[in-house]
Design a protein around this nucleic acid. Structure first.
Lengths: 203, 203
DNA sequence: CGAGATGTAGACCGGTCGGTCTACTGTCGT
DNA sequence: ACGACAGTAGACCGACCGGTCTACATCTCG
């Protein structure tokens, strides 16, 4: 959700050494599944990663394994970004939560944005037993936890309920960014976020 | 969004005559694209519809044509259902809008629900030129219009902005129903809806 | 050195994809 | 009766699907 990857070049590596096949496959999968959906072909992934067919099956056991692992990494990075965004906003819970909504609002309005990768994966992976579903569930639990903690610190009377509301708002914001970007969803969402979070020192 | 179709049997037909191939294809597509996604194979559609391969290409020109036409019909039915739900709620704009949110809340909590078909289609159809996108855009415009009219009747100072908010809320509600049904998204959404709509005679 | 591990390159597998085409059948209007 | 037509049944097409396999290159480490 939080950023876009073009390749291994602009990752924070100290050396410019080309990473191994496993790494290149994960990066290619992050890129291609976002632009083409999880339905991308194995051949396209291999070509984009510049990796031999065999390496995929050695490292991930198959396409599903790669998809699941790529989702795992992506969620970890996004949760970390949520955390960083909050920390950069200071200590005040209201400001921390609003910072996340504002950041997502900016992302959703980016002309290259086309939807939440995790929701898209859940909707596209018809098989409920696909390992990817477990990853996205864990992701949502983690974000919900992040929100709940802030509401608790805020002394909110129903922290989990408020976190549910914020999560609904975020999903709606991302959906609107993907399908109705001309409606300027960031502004509409922010106002709702303020209502959920309640007015405080920063607002 | 609003209902589930199992086949032509339970449609409001006066005769029990089996509909033609075109009709059966549309019904099969509505059913299968919802459960399997728009990626379903042509063979599966033909088998479910009990229709010869040739009929598909005669009536719709190809799979994309069938998908687009099925979305067209689906959106028409859903918009009609929005209207009916509002009308059944009476004349009071607040009550009419809340009735829609409540109805969608019930649908999103149905154990068989697995996401908004139109958002899923937009996320799954990677090609931005696919005719289906135009259909879903029109659908969202229509619903936005429906909402805007009610806010206008309500004397709301920013009817379009409020409609945008309600649309974001609805998308979030449906996403939550698909991915976090255990969080009881209907209750959380209703409270937000009440905030957007404002308290009135019915609330 | 030489063995083992790791990688590439690409042939190959059965199956499915969307789409075209031919052959046949039932039905309806004249 | 008969032709036109809409439908079915299914063979067939090239392309691609995910996955397995062999052959060879490269590297590290004992």
């Amino acid at each position: 959700m939080f950023y876009r990857v073009k390749g291994w070049h602009n990752r924070g590596m100290t050396t410019s050494a080309k990473p191994g096949p496993r790494e290149r496959l994960l990066l290619a999968a992050q890129e291609l599944t976002y632009t083409q959906g999880v339905g991308v072909g194995v051949d396209a992934l291999l070509k984009a990663a510049g990796v031999a067919r065999r390496s995929l099956y050695e490292h991930f056991g198959g396409k599903d394994g790669l998809i699941a692992e790529m989702l795992r990494r992506s969620t970890a990075e996004d949760v970390e970004q949520y955390r960083r965004t909050m920390d950069e906003a200071g200590d005040e819970p209201r400001a921390r939560l609003l910072a996340v909504v504002d950041r997502l609002g900016r992302i959703a309005c980016d002309p290259h944005f086309h939807g939440c990768r995790y929701l898209a994966a859940d909707l596209a992976l018809a098989d409920p037993a696909h390992p990817g579903h477990e990853v996205t569930r864990a992701y949502r639990r983690a974000v919900h936890r992040l929100f709940t903690d802030e509401f608790t610190a805020l002394g909110h009377e129903r922290p989990e309920f408020a976190a549910d509301q914020l999560l609904i708002l975020v999903d709606g914001l991302l959906a609107a960014g993907a399908t109705r970007p001309e409606s300027r969803p960031a502004a509409a969402s922010r106002e709702l976020a303020v209502h959920i979070i309640g007015s405080g020192p920063r607002d």
